[in-house]
């Protein structure tokens, strides 16, 4: 994993945990309008970040995998195989 990929992955992981945490909060506070608006805003930003990452470094989920000569999903090291996740 090069420096740029690692930085992009860090940003993605940071955004992800923010959204996961906010999602859990919303499970028990489903009427919190401020949290609902935050979720919508940052989820959109997250989707953009994911697209940028996937364009450069391959699929994050199997739904985004493809390939002409080789199945891209199994082309790269798995998260537990590479330092930095």
């Amino acid at each position: 994993m090069d420096k740029k990929q690692e930085t992009m992955l860090r940003d993605l992981q940071a955004m992800d945990i923010f959204l996961i945490d906010l999602g859990l909060y919303l499970d028990t506070h489903p009427c919190d309008k401020e949290a609902l608006a935050l979720y919508k805003k940052y989820n959109e930003q997250n989707n953009k970040m994911r697209s940028q990452y996937q364009e450069l470094y391959g699929p994050l989920t199997i739904r985004h995998a493809d390939g002409v000569d080789y199945w891209q999903w199994v082309a790269d090291p798995w998260p537990w195989e590479r330092l930095g996740g």
Binding site: L9, R10, L12, Q13, D16, I17, I20, G58, P59, L60, T61, I62, R63, D76, W78, P79, W80, L83, G84, G85
Partner: peptide, 15 residues
């Protein structure tokens, strides 16, 4: 479930 190809938080053990 759908698997996501990344760890939830980075792990980088050098030693």
């Amino acid at each position: 479930w759908i698997y996501e190809r990344k760890l939830q938080y980075p792990i980088k053990i050098k030693n």
